[in-house]
């Protein structure tokens, strides 16, 4: 088998680029901890309240420290449960100051859902029996729509919430 000289150069450059890409993402993942979410934490899909984070009173936004927040979400067809406000209405919007570190934790009560804070890197599959979680720093002010981006049924496109990151 014979390779033309130019093809050798091309393959060395091409494979070299792939190695560089892999090194960059590998460095981020293994040394800086930016793996895609993969915690393998399981939960009882028939009773997600058995996990402290998904008890009704713990849903939604919780401030844990200065500039540190946790957002717990119970997903079900076709709704994100972010808890209730003082008047007892369902929370649909979460407000977080810019620069905060936010841990998003989600679990589903029924089928597979998606959880994407659109326009950010918070993009997770939410699958029955597992807790999905991802920590991020909300550095850019703006209004972000949380969308369910995995098909969950006829009301899939009606499943959303909002995150406001304010200055």
């Amino acid at each position: 088998m014979h390779l033309h000289k130019f093809e050798k150069i091309w393959l060395v450059c091409g494979i070299g680029s792939l190695v560089v890409f892999l090194f960059i993402v590998g460095y981020g993942a293994f040394w800086q901890g930016t793996h895609p979410q993969s915690h393998g934490v399981t939960i009882d899909p028939y009773n997600i309240e058995s996990n402290e984070a998904f008890k009704p009173e713990n849903l939604g936004l919780t401030k844990v420290d200065d500039d540190k927040y946790i957002v717990n979400i119970a997903a079900s067809a076709f709704n994100y449960d972010l808890g209730k406000d003082e008047e007892g209405n369902a929370v649909k919007t979460i407000r977080i100051p810019k620069g905060s570190t936010v841990l998003f934790q989600a679990a589903t009560k029924d089928v597979v859902h998606g959880f994407h804070v659109a326009g950010t890197n918070v993009n997770m599959m939410v699958e029955p029996g597992y807790v999905s979680s991802l920590e991020t720093v909300m550095d850019n002010a703006g209004t972000y729509t949380i969308v369910c981006n995995e098909y969950c049924g006829v009301g899939h496109h009606m499943m959303y919430a909002t995150v406001e990151v304010y200055e």
Partner: peptide, 16 residues
Amino acid sequence: EKPNLIGTFISVMLLG
């Protein structure tokens, strides 16, 4: 003779 593949080479490098 060896085929002249300079155009090919430039094309794939642009693609890369």
